[in-house]
Design a protein around this nucleic acid. Structure first.
Length: 595
RNA sequence: GGUCCAGUAGCUCAGUUGGAUAGAGCAGCAGCCUUCUAAGCUGCGGGUCACAGGUUCGAGCCCUGUCUGGAUCACCA
């Protein structure tokens, strides 16, 4: 990497010129802004204390030393306190020659070490997936792909919240008002069917509450004592006791939901190495709580409920087991964390979960620590922001959620209409066209969701986000398709470009800026992996595509008369297409060969 | 009220460990299809980086305070 070389030269220059070993932090090398000549810039301001000269003089002295002592840096210019360095064409061509045949340039191989476990998705089995889940799923999948590309051993896991009071609510509603309807009899997707009964429960429950309040009951009391809620609670107890009837119903309805989820996951293109079910792990959580009670780090209240006292850490007391002995969310999470640790002994346990649960994860770590689990430090909450709609937040009970399947359908239609309007479908078979519309609509959706910094709340405007122009997935896909088209034409014309020709000594600005960008790819992957941010990759891919589009327009690749030049440009195009493809792979977006 | 997060162009977002005149896209305006794909390219207009102090050679970025918005502090998950 040339930056490393420059930093090294800079250090030597300072030692040689000023007789002092500089601190690492003082050595600042960055990319040169496009309006100046050069590719890399040394910021000399921090070095003035050592040089005891003015910025221009210091920069000139260092610049001179560097070009005198390196064959790769051939020129410098000084503007204020900035020393701009020009890297030789030979260096760039040598670098290009190295990566040209490296088909997975920028990706690292796994070098051993403990795995990193990434949990994402974590759906509840009482309602279908919506826009918020889409952000979660795409983030988790992409973060895993990026970590893998950066040489980590990644395990993708899903934790299905398949039990609890909310599940019992749908079950109860179905039992009461379902009339034995099934996905088969209704033709409805299983997760949607069950979701409808969850909504039904809520409606009936609210009606009951209102009736009780009408009769003069205290609202808080009504909330807790409405017969429907009591029934749901009883059902949960029966479930935990293993009541056969309840368990059978539960198995049946969850089965419908899983079938529905699979359809959505498949379409989204996400997958898992392992699926955990809370019904399998909550007992372990309970036993951890028992253990904690014995150790005296937890305590029991007079009603029999079990708590963890976190007031010393500045938080509240936290409930771990209800008075009736049933477990809560936290209990289950303790169990799954332990199980996952047992399974993998991972270096890191990443949870992709919305930022509304920041507090939950603080508590989870603290409780685990209290229970003596030192590995709690490996837990990392990848906290992402909510997805908001123009009309405000999504509320499932108010019907303002954007359903995942519906959204994908709509985007597919838009891709179809847009493509047909452009008249590009002529020579595609129906199968090819279908495949393309799928690629484009999913590309648009995925790119839109992932280009935003994960931790930020994002705005999703359905009307605008299906735009295919500008900074979008389809723009990048389009660029890839065009490059491939150039390469096909070159092939048809019998122009070979398989050998890198390093005999050319002249590179123009456009070619150079593409090379600089390609040079950055491995660092970009690395940085995205460290900060768990697909947005870094997405924005890089856009920059690359944009840069190429300008390049493409400025230079007629196939018309170039100089054979060496033409060959070099074809090679550059080929590597650019490959890098675009690799980048898009990391955010789960397929790129078409033509469109 | 406590804790945490955010505030950058009309809108959606970038902005690397603090570095040069704060960048894209959309929307608006003006050009470019006899040119390897116009889902593109070129140009124009658009900014008190919420506000006020501070730190320093230098602050969108760091510190303090204020304002605004959001999340959370549930025997929901």
């Amino acid at each position: 990497m040339i930056e490393t070389t420059i930093t090294q030269l800079l250090r030597e220059a300072i030692v040689s010129l000023y007789g002092q070993e500089p601190a690492e932090a003082l050595l600042q090398v960055q990319k040169t802004r496009p309006e100046f000549k050069g590719e890399y810039t040394v910021v000399v301001f921090p070095l003035l204390k050592i040089s005891r000269k003015n910025p221009e003089q210091t920069a000139s002295e260092i610049g001179k030393y560097i070009i005198d002592n390196s064959s790769d840096i051939i020129e410098f210019n000084v503007i204020k306190g900035f020393l701009n360095l020009s890297v030789s064409n030979q260096y760039w061509l040598r670098f290009f020659g190295e990566i040209f045949h490296e088909s997975d340039y920028g990706f690292k191989k796994h070098t051993g070490g403990a795995p990193i476990v990434i949990e994402y998705s974590s759906p509840n089995t009482n309602k279908p997936l919506h826009l918020g889940h889409i952000r979660n799923n795409l983030l988790g999948w992409s973060v895993a792909a990026i970590a893998k590309a950066n040489g980590m051993d990644v395990k993708k896991v899903n934790l299905v919240n398949d039990r609890g009071i909310h599940i019992c609510k749908s079950m109860l509603a179905w039992q009461k008002w379902g009339n034995d309807s099934t996905p088969e009899t209704t033709g409805q997707k299983g997760d949607k069917l069950v979701g409808d009964y969850y909504v039904r429960f809520d409606q009936e429950y609210k009606a009951e509450m209102a009736a009780l309040i009408e009769k003069g009951m205290d609202p808080d009391k009504a909330k807790n004592e409405a017969p429907l809620l009591l029934e749901a609670k009883q059902m949960l107890k029966k479930w935990e006791d293993g009541d056969k009837q309840v368990r059978d119903l539960w198995l049946k309805m969850n089965g419908w939901v899983y079938d529905g989820f699979d359809v959505t996951y498949n379409r989204l293109g996400i997958d898992f190495d392992k699926i955990y079910y809370e019904s399998d792990t909550y007992l372990l959580g309970k036993s951890l709580v028992e253990e904690g009670l014995k150790k005296g780090v937890l305590f029991k209240k007079e009603d029999g409920s079990v708590w963890c006292d976190l007031t010393a850490e500045g938080l509240d007391e936290k409930l771990l087991l209800r008075a009736d002995g049933t477990s809560v969310y936290m209990t289950q999470d303790l169990g799954t964390a332990q199980l996952r640790y047992n399974d993998y002994h991972p270096e890191k346990l990443v949870y992709v979960v919305g930022n509304e649960q920041n507090y939950h994860f603080d508590v989870l770590k603290l409780v685990l620590k209290k229970l003596g689990k030192e590995w709690a430090d490996a837990i990392e909450h990848l906290s992402y922001g909510m997805v908001e709609l123009p009309q405000g937040k999504m509320k499932s009970r108010e019907g303002t959620v954007v359903d995942a399947d519906d959204l994908m359908d709509e985007m597919y239609q838009t891709a179809k209409i847009t493509t047909e309007a452009l008249g590009k479908f002529d020579d595609f078979t129906p199968e090819e066209a279908h495949k393309l519309y799928n690629m484009l609509s999913l590309g648009a959706l995925k790119y839109f969701m992932l280009k935003v910094d994960p931790k930020k709340t994002m705005m999703f405007n359905p009307a605008e986000s299906i735009d295919f122009t500008g900074n979008t997935g389809p723009f990048i896909q389009y660029t890839h398709a065009r490059i491939k088209s150039v390469l096909r034409k070159a092939d048809e014309a019998g122009i070979s470009f398989s050998e890198v020709n390093t005999s050319i000594s002249e590179l123009d600005d456009k070619e150079k800026s593409l090379l600089v960008l390609l040079h950055e790819f491995p660092q970009t992957v690395n940085q995205a992996a460290i900060s768990f941010s697909p947005a870094i990759i997405a924005n890089y891919a856009y920059e690359l595509a944009k840069e190429f589009n300008q390049f493409y327009h400025a230079l007629l690749i196939l018309k170039e008369e100089n054979m060496h030049k033409r060959q070099l440009r074809l090679q550059l195009s080929s590597v650019t297409a490959r890098t675009i493809k690799l980048s898009m792979q990391l955010i789960g977006v397929e790129v078409p060969e033509r469109m």
